[in-house]
Simulated scan of single mutants.
Amino acid sequence: MATVILVRHGRTTANATGLLAGRADGVSLDQVGRDQAALTGDRLAVVPLVGVVSSPLERCRETAQFILDRQTGTPKAPVDPDINECDYGQWQGRTLSELAKEDMWPMVQSQPSAVVFPGGESMATMQARAVAAIRRHDAAFESEYGPGAVWVAVSHGDVIKSILADALGMHLDLFQRITVGPASASIVHYGAGRPSVHATNTDAGDLSWVSKGLQAGDAPVGGGAGHKAP
C-alpha cells in the first residue's frame, strides 16, 4: 500500500490559551503555529507527495498550504470532512481547566471508548470515520500512483491519536498514551497483512528516506538495519 504522513495542524490562538476550539470557525494559526507549519513543509519538501488531504477547518487548511507551497509537483489537495475534528458538542469553546472539573473528564482520560460528548459525537465514532477515511484515501492513492506513493493527511490531535492507536493495534481506551504535538509528523504504511508505524510525533529531522518507498512484509527479528542514511 501507499504511505501516509499524518500531520497535525500548527499551534493556534486557541491552543495557546488552553481553549477547546473543536469545530468553531475562525480559529487560525498563531505566529508560532505558522512557523511550525513552515518547518513541517520544509521537512516534507524532499518527499514528492501525491496528495495532501486536509480537514475542512481553517487551521488544517493553513497548515496544508504551507506543505503544498514547498512541493515542486502539484499534489492533489482534497478536503475531507471525515478527518475533521471531533465534535465536542457542549464542550466546544470552553477552557481545558474548566473541563477538567467535569464528571466525564476522568472517563475521557481512561475510558474514551465510552465517551459521548453532550450534544456531540462519541470518540469511538470519531475513530471509526477517521480510520475509514485514511484507509480509503490510502487505497485510492496506491491504485493511481503505485505502492511507493506517499501522501499527507492534515488533521487534529485526537483524530491522529485515534488513527495511530488503530495502526498500532491498541484499544481506543489506551490512545491517551500517544502524544501528537502541533505540526508533528507521524508515518504509517498500510501493508497487505497489517499496518506498520514508522514514526510518531516527530517535529524535526530528515524525511528523505520516506520518498524511497516503504515496503510491508515480515518484521525483521532484532529490528533490522533501518533506513539508509540520506
Score class of each variant (00 low, 15 high):
V27G: 00
L29V: 11
D30K: 11
D30A: 11
V32Y: 00
G33F: 02
G33W: 00
R34E: 12
R34K: 14
R34P: 00
D35V: 01
D35C: 01
Q36S: 02
A37S: 12
A37R: 03
G41M: 02
D42V: 13
D42S: 15
L44A: 12
L44T: 08
A45V: 04
V46T: 15
V46I: 12
V46E: 05
V46C: 10
V47R: 05
P48N: 07
P48E: 09
G51H: 01
G51D: 10
V52Q: 05
P56I: 14
L57N: 01
E58V: 10
E58A: 12
R59Q: 12
R61D: 02
E62P: 01
T63I: 06
T63R: 09
F66M: 07
D69I: 11
R70P: 01
R70A: 13
Q71G: 05
Q71K: 08
Q71V: 13
G73T: 12
G73F: 08
T74I: 03
P75I: 01
K76C: 07
K76E: 13
V79K: 05
V79E: 03
V79N: 04
V79L: 09
D80M: 11
D80H: 06
D80G: 13
P81N: 11
P81Q: 14
P81Y: 14
D82M: 09
I83Y: 06
I83E: 03
I83K: 06
N84E: 13
N84P: 00
E85F: 00
E85Q: 03
C86W: 00
C86V: 15
D87L: 05
G89F: 00
G89V: 11
Q90D: 15
W91V: 04
W91R: 04
Q92R: 07
Q92L: 04
G93S: 05
R94I: 05
T95P: 00
T95S: 12
L96H: 09
L96R: 14
S97K: 13
E98T: 13
E98N: 04
K101T: 12
K101W: 01
E102V: 07
P106H: 14
P106R: 13
P106W: 10
P106V: 11
M107C: 02
M107I: 14
M107D: 02
V108H: 09
S110T: 15
Q111W: 04
Q111S: 08
P112T: 14
P112M: 12
S113A: 08
S113C: 01
A114C: 04
A114Q: 15
V115P: 03
V115W: 03
V116E: 12
V116F: 06
G120C: 09
G120S: 10
G120P: 01
S122K: 03
M123R: 08
M123T: 05
A124K: 07
A124L: 07
T125I: 07
Q127T: 01
R129H: 05
R129Q: 06
R129I: 06
V131H: 08
A132Y: 03
A132V: 10
A132H: 08
A133V: 01
I134V: 15
I134M: 15
I134Y: 14
R135V: 04
R136I: 07
R136G: 01
